[in-house]
Amino acid sequence: MSLITCKNLSFEYDGIAVVKDINFDVTDGDYLCIVGENGTGKSTLIKGLLRLKKPFQGEIILNQELAANQIGYLPQQTIIQADFPASVFEVVLSGCLNNLGFKPFYTGKEKRLAKENMQKLGINHLKNDCYRDLSGGQKQRVLLARALCATKKIIVLDEPAAGLDPIVTNELYELIHNINSKYGITIVMVSHDIKATLRYASHILHLHNTQLFFGSTEEYLQSEVGRKFVGGYE
C-alpha cells in the first residue's frame, strides 16, 4: 500500500528552484533514506511532505488512510528547547495534540498513548525528569516518542543523529530500526551517515537539486551514482 506518492515535485525559494522533478513513492513499512550533499534540497523536501512548504509544481498524494496531520515528525532541535522547563511526560503528551480535535484537554486515552510510547522507547524511568537536563540521546528518544504519539503509520526524521556521539548514534539507529521492523512504522529519514543508511534503509532517494536515484538499497549499490557516493565516504 502506497502511503505517499510524489509526482514531478519541485520547490523554490524566492523564485529560485531548490529541488525539482522529484518522483517517488513510500510504501507502508518502507525505511526510506534521503541522501545527498548539503544544500541539495533534502530538508526542503521534508518540509514539503509535512505541508510546511507548498510545492511550486507537482503534487504530493497521501493515502486516504493517512491524514496530513498524522505524519509523525522528528525535527532538528531548536535553541528554545535547550533550556526549556518541561517534564518528559509533558513533551511526549504534546504529540497527542492532533488527536484532540476541538477538545481543550487530554483525556486518559492520550495519556495512555503517551505512556505506551515512552515504554516502547525505554524512557519510562525519565517520565518526571526535566527535558533540559537530559543527554542528547535521551532528548532524541523523547522527541521520537512524541512523534510516535502523533502517528500510527509514518515518521519523518530530519538528521536525528546530528550532534550525537557514535555510541549513542548507533543506539538511536537501532531504535529507529526497531520501530520500523517491530511496530511496522514507515520511516522517512534525512541522513548524512551513509554507512548507517546502507545498513538499515530499504530504499534510497538521492538528491542533488534534482532526483539522481530512487530505488531499493541493493539497486543503489549497483548504480553508478550510488557507487560514487558511497565510495567517496570510504
Binding site: 504534546s94 495534540l97 519523518v156
Partner: peptide, 23 residues
C-alpha cells in the same frame, strides 16, 4: 489561557512540530 493551555505549550515548545502535526 486555561482553555488553550495544551496548545500554547505545544506551540511554545516546538512550533515546527506543532505545525507539521496540524496545529
Amino acid at each position: 489561557f486555561i482553555l488553550f493551555y495544551n496548545r500554547i505549550f505545544a506551540v511554545t515548545f516546538d512550533e515546527t512540530f506543532a505545525k507539521a502535526t496540524g496545529t
